Amino acid sequence: MLEHTKILIVEDEAVIAMHLSMIIEDCGGEVIGPAISVAEALALIAAGAEIEGAVLDGNLGDGDVTPVALELVAKAIPVVIYSGVGIPPDLASIHPDLPVVLKPQAASKAISLLVASIEDKQICKQICRLHLP
Rank of each mutant, 00 (worst) to 15 (best):
S83N: 03
P104D: 05
A43Q: 15
P96Y: 06
E13P: 01
K109L: 15
V65A: 10
K109N: 10
A76L: 11
A14S: 14
E52I: 05
A92C: 05
G86W: 04
V68E: 09
L44D: 01
A49F: 04
I111P: 05
C124W: 13
E30Y: 07
P89Y: 03
Y82K: 06
G61M: 01
V73K: 01
E119D: 14
P34Y: 03
L56G: 00
L2W: 04
E119H: 11
K75S: 13
L2T: 07
A92Y: 08
M22L: 15
I118A: 07
V80N: 02
E52C: 08
G61Q: 10
C27L: 13
Q122R: 15
A92W: 00
A69V: 04
D90W: 02
K121G: 08
A107T: 05
L8T: 02
A76Y: 11
A107Y: 02
I127R: 15
S83A: 05
A106C: 07
P96R: 10
D90Y: 05
L114H: 00
L114N: 06
V85M: 14
I111D: 10
H19P: 01
R129P: 04
I81N: 04
P99Q: 11
E30M: 12
V73P: 06
K121V: 02
A54V: 09
S93N: 12
E119V: 14
A14P: 11
I7L: 10
G48A: 00
G33P: 00
G28C: 01
H4T: 13
L70C: 14
A14Y: 12
L102T: 08
I81F: 03
I118K: 09
L20A: 06
